[in-house]
Design a protein around this nucleic acid. Sequence first.
DNA 1: CCCTTTTTCGTCACGCTGACGATAAGCGCC
DNA 2: GGCGCTTATCGTCAGCGTGACGAAAAAGGG
Lengths: 229, 229
Amino acid sequence: MADFPSPMGTASVTADLVVLTVQDNELRVLLVRRGIEPHRGAWALPGGFVLADEDLDAAAVRELREETGLTAPVGHLEQLASYGAPGRDPRGRVVTVAYLALLPHLPAPVAGSDAEGAAWVALPVGELAFDHARILADGVERARAKLEYSPLATAFCPPEFTITELREVYETVWDARLDPRNFHRKVTSTPGFVEPVGRSVAADRGRPAQLFRRGPTHLLHPPMLRPTP
Amino acid sequence: MADFPSPMGTASVTADLVVLTVQDNELRVLLVRRGIEPHRGAWALPGGFVLADEDLDAAAVRELREETGLTAPVGHLEQLASYGAPGRDPRGRVVTVAYLALLPHLPAPVAGSDAEGAAWVALPVGELAFDHARILADGVERARAKLEYSPLATAFCPPEFTITELREVYETVWDARLDPRNFHRKVTSTPGFVEPVGRSVAADRGRPAQLFRRGPTHLLHPPMLRPTP
DNA sequence: CCCTTTTTCGTCACGCTGACGATAAGCGCC
DNA sequence: GGCGCTTATCGTCAGCGTGACGAAAAAGGG
């Protein structure tokens, strides 16, 4: 690491969020409509500046809470990547540390103080402010890849879910169809992926399905295979 | 994204490198000995401040060139993660974007202007300045994982290499022993992993080995499996 | 009760892997 | 040149996980 004084004056640092959820068999992202310039009126990823005495992860957690009203620790949050091209923000040098959040479907989002509104927008979305389209694409790609070798699909589900609900998450995020019988075998035979609750729940039609919780495993061995188109 | 003025004054942004190589069946990392405070005399990851009109990736490429003297694009370079805990640098708020580089073994490294020396240090290393021990651990873990599902082990090899050299890379990075026969079958039967050059090379003893180049694939299907200890 | 729907269990062929034997192709030495 | 040693490369075979698909179980509705 070099030393002061810095050749690059200084930069502002923001934590922006790619918050994904699955609703109505659609992959949706939380977007806010910008209330101020630049890009006033355009859709953008939620986020904000990192505070002076705040860690990057803490800033992401705070932003997520502010935008979704989340209090309990549900879903999943991880650092995605950082973006700092010189011209990406017309106001000056801004380095953005992007985070990826996977959540079960929640009530209507809350608009932040600097936004005119917030909404869950189904993918693919249209134009976004700044380089947020690229950040979103990176987040979606990360999420798609992580479903293969991690049990993170359960982050899209409520605390108790059926195998079919979990399969619909995979089918939605991957935009593919999975065989219900093979999927059921795979999920229930992978140790630590899901644990049976013991109760069942009846849908509108068909045989009632068993309820499951997410298991203790953080890595799938062997991974869930994405069908080859 | 929120707007100016920033609640967090501003921060300095550095690009630090986890440069890994394999030499003498040891995984080694490029470290510099700090010539100035803080942590003067301590080992640290190479890196430096991002310039005013410079993208993050460009800063990483420049630092890598300055520290290793690399001109041609060899090996592999990717963003690792960002670190910005408030107290991680005693001089003030510094956000570091860490990069991971995988290189074949090179001649002696070059000491930067702000370092008293540079060296390839075999893992595990001792104490490091700042939070560089954590960054290094994250980089090594990323490298170990990537060898499973990507052909990045070839980044540790010279342009032309034998299957045995490639296997020794896996064995060194994973600290495991692989069956030479099964490894040979796996590598040569995975499409696009390696391509035969057509020539052979004789070692000190034994049958001469065929030479290979890295293939066009960027993802291994199915992945190379790490042995379960 | 029969039909429909959905969940859940079984069966079977195939491909990949781990374990390991066998052969090929060099070298040094006598 | 033949022999022994070492390493590279090819073969064989059992076991496991997977894709494809049949079949039974468990509800509700006419």
